[in-house]
Amino acid sequence: MQQQKSLVSPFRVLPLARLAKGGRWRTEAMRSYGAPVLLWFTRGQGRITMNGRTSGYTAHNAVFIPAGTMHGFEMNSTVHGMIVVFPAGVEEQLSLPDDPVHLRLTDAEQHIELNRLIDAIQTELENGATASDRALLSHAGLLSVWIERQMRGHEVEEPREDASVRLAAAFTSLVEQDFHSPKTVRDYAKTLGVTPTHLSRVCNKACGRPASAILADRVHYEARRLLTETHMPVKDIARALGFASPAYFTRAFTQHTGRTPSAFRRGS
C-alpha cells in the first residue's frame, strides 16, 4: 500500500487579529504569500487592495487570494474574522480560482455554511489524528466547492476591466516578480511602455497610492519579514533586496518605518 505523502506546507486557520500581531504593516503593507489564502471578515469594514485595485470590504465578506498575488488591507480594532491558509501547490488539485475573488455574502445561511467549513478544518488541525492530511484535503476540497458555487451566483464583485485597472495589475505583477532587484519605478514603466508619471497616476486612481509607494511597500514588507522571522544579517537582507549597500538600505528602511533595521529587529 502506498504511503500517504505529507502536505508540502501546512494548513493554517488563524484569527485575523493574530495575523496583525506585531504591527499594522503585517496586513496593510503590500505583499504576497506563497500559498493561497481565504480571508473571512465577520465584523468591521475597511479597504482591501489586490492586484493594484482597491475596493471596500464589510462584515460577511469572503476574499480568496491566489498565491503570489500582491495585496494589503486595512485592519483596525473593530475588524474581526479568520484567515485560512491553504498548502502551497494544491490549487490545481482543489480547483481553486486563478484570480482573486471578492464575495459579499448577504444570506445568513452562507455565513453559517462558511463558518462550518472553516471550523471543520480547524478541528482537524487541532486533533491531528491519523490520516489528517487526507482529511484536511477533503475539507479544503469542500471549501473550494463552496467558493465555486458562490461565484456562480451574484455575490462576486467584478472589477472594472478598464485600461487603468489592467495597467495597475500588470505593474503589481511585475513588482511581485522583481521586487528583490534594484529596479525603480522608471524601469517598470519602461517595461510596460508608459511614462513613470502615467504609471503613478494610474496606480493612484486604481488603489489610492502612487507606483513608488507600492514598490516601497513591497520591498520594506519583505525587509521587515526577514528581520522578524529570520536571523539574516542586515547586510545580507540589503543584498537580497537589491540595495547597493547596507548603509543605503538602512537609510531607506529608517525613512520608511521610522526605525533602523537593528532597532526594528530588537523591538519585534
Rank of each mutant, 00 (worst) to 15 (best):
M1Y: 00
Q3Y: 02
L7A: 05
L7Q: 05
V8N: 10
S9R: 07
S9A: 13
P10E: 00
R12D: 11
V13L: 14
K21P: 00
G23S: 03
G23Y: 02
R24I: 06
G34W: 09
A35Q: 13
V37R: 14
R43M: 08
R43D: 11
R43H: 15
R43S: 10
G46Y: 05
G46N: 08
R47F: 06
N51H: 07
S55E: 13
T58L: 12
N61L: 01
N61R: 01
A62Q: 11
V63K: 02
I65T: 07
P66T: 11
P66F: 07
G68Q: 08
H71T: 10
H71S: 06
E74T: 14
V79S: 13
H80M: 12
V84T: 12
P87V: 07
P87R: 03
E91A: 13
Q93P: 01
Q93S: 11
L94A: 00
S95T: 11
V101F: 01
T106H: 09
A108I: 10
E109I: 02
Q110M: 06
E113K: 08
N115H: 14
L117C: 07
D119M: 07
I121Y: 00
L125N: 09
G128A: 08
T130L: 15
S132M: 13
L136F: 04
L137K: 06
L137A: 08
G141N: 00
L142Q: 13
L143K: 08
V145F: 04
W146K: 00
W146R: 01
W146Q: 01
I147H: 03
R149W: 06
Q150I: 06
H154L: 06
H154S: 08
H154I: 05
V156P: 01
V156R: 10
E157F: 12
P159M: 06
R160M: 11
A163R: 14
S164T: 04
V165D: 07
L167P: 04
A168V: 03
F171K: 01
F171S: 05
T172I: 03
E176A: 14
Q177D: 11
S181K: 08
S181P: 04
K183C: 05
T184G: 02
R186C: 10
R186Y: 09
Y188E: 11
L192N: 11
G193I: 14
G193V: 13
G193H: 14
V194R: 15
V202T: 15
V202A: 02
C207I: 00
C207H: 09
A211Y: 08
A211N: 10
A211W: 10
D217S: 14
H220C: 07
H220I: 13
R224Q: 13
R224C: 06
T228G: 12
T230D: 11
T230I: 09
M232L: 15
D236R: 12
I237F: 04
I237Y: 03
A238N: 05
A238R: 01
A240M: 07
L241M: 12
G242P: 06
G242A: 09
A244H: 13
S245T: 13
S245H: 06
P246W: 07
P246D: 05
R251W: 01
A252R: 07
Q255A: 15
T257K: 01
R259M: 12
T260F: 04
P261V: 03
F264R: 01
G267P: 00
S268D: 01
